[in-house]
Design a protein around this nucleic acid. Sequence first.
DNA 1: GCTTTCCTTACGGGAAACCGTAAAGCGAGA
DNA 2: TCTCGCTTTACGGTTTCCCGTAAGGAAAGC
Lengths: 222, 222
Amino acid sequence: MMFERVLIAEDQESTSISVRKTIEDLKIVASDYVFYCDDAFARIQKAIKTGQPFDLLITDLSFEEDHHVQKIVDGAALIKAAKDEQPGLKVLVFSAEGKSAVIDVLIKDLGIDGYVRKARHDAKELKLALEAIAEGKKYFPAQMKVLMKERNTYDFTSYDTTIIALLAGGVKQKEIPKHLDDQNIKPSGLSSIEKRLNLIREVMSFSTNEQLIAYCKDFKII
Amino acid sequence: MMFERVLIAEDQESTSISVRKTIEDLKIVASDYVFYCDDAFARIQKAIKTGQPFDLLITDLSFEEDHHVQKIVDGAALIKAAKDEQPGLKVLVFSAEGKSAVIDVLIKDLGIDGYVRKARHDAKELKLALEAIAEGKKYFPAQMKVLMKERNTYDFTSYDTTIIALLAGGVKQKEIPKHLDDQNIKPSGLSSIEKRLNLIREVMSFSTNEQLIAYCKDFKII
DNA sequence: GCTTTCCTTACGGGAAACCGTAAAGCGAGA
DNA sequence: TCTCGCTTTACGGTTTCCCGTAAGGAAAGC
């Protein structure tokens, strides 16, 4: 049983058009689309009030900022808000984002039903995902699992990425303890930070912090 | 006088579909589309041989790698190869890339005719760009000029990027002179390298090398 | 030929980062 | 409460990096 009412939140007009086309191909007539998260949330609320809630939300993750100031600024926040309002709402994420950590959170914390990466054959995948979710299944493509494995050379904890992000932001090592204290992150001792960095470099066979930063940028860890 | 023969190089199927739709709306019937740069180049060559060369190439910048190994891996290289083969070919870049100094290179070195950023209203912009280029004009939206102004004034020389790339590769500063000597790059003195890095950091208001590496990765300078 | 100027290199003091070791904290369990 | 085990911190010695100054060297101009 295919969906009846679908909402598309996607800021790239060109992508939005394609998604709508895919939806139409599946004979779904009651779809709606928006370019801003706040609009999406408003539509969801209104649909509930009028007794015709959406069955499915298809949303991007990153929305570009513009003059139009928004309360909800990205897809993750939109999903959270939407689920609070309508827990049974199915959610399909359609994004160019490839970072496994991000997607992991979406699955575990927000309970999304599917994920399609913007890439070659994404339109076909979108269709497959819609069909799968309509049948009550989840849809997470194989290539994603591959990505998760490939990136597993070392598990960067949020502690690691915090430190690395500070370094990349120009903060000197010996000043990192202050920053961590401000955020109530422990351990905050300089030695602990040194040790942690040393461990990471050793495991990854890096000789310098510069190399580490380059790696993290390449793999979108920060 | 609108284009007659248009080639679309875009790896995201969903985006490709939209671009094709826009093209059709403009009554262009002889369009062709591909998902890989190598295919695009082959089509261009073939079209020349059969006496029906393309008028316009619409291309993305970044193409995702997959099992299919390619000689040409990104849009910039494709444009270069295409222009070598057919100097008169008009080129419109359609990409999500927003900040990069790469765009500057595209305009100055590759002589592209237009640039449309994947964002809200990109489909409408695409249409405007096509009309402008068809009239022999260039199309670079206002928002990009702002970005170009905001862009940092520092020009990274190939010397700079060589050094920075070495750092990002894990080479220690004091070992860089050897590497430069091996490549017959002068100056190779440690002091010169230190001075150079110091200058860059000062101009860009960076406090550490880590921050510099992060910046260069973000802006695809290395 | 001889400055002048600019660029490169050499050197040295001081700061930061690196790394091993030892001490201090802290929770779990007897 | 005390001990055990683990984690965090503190503290040195060493290396590397940072940065100012001065010496060397080549090209341009008079």
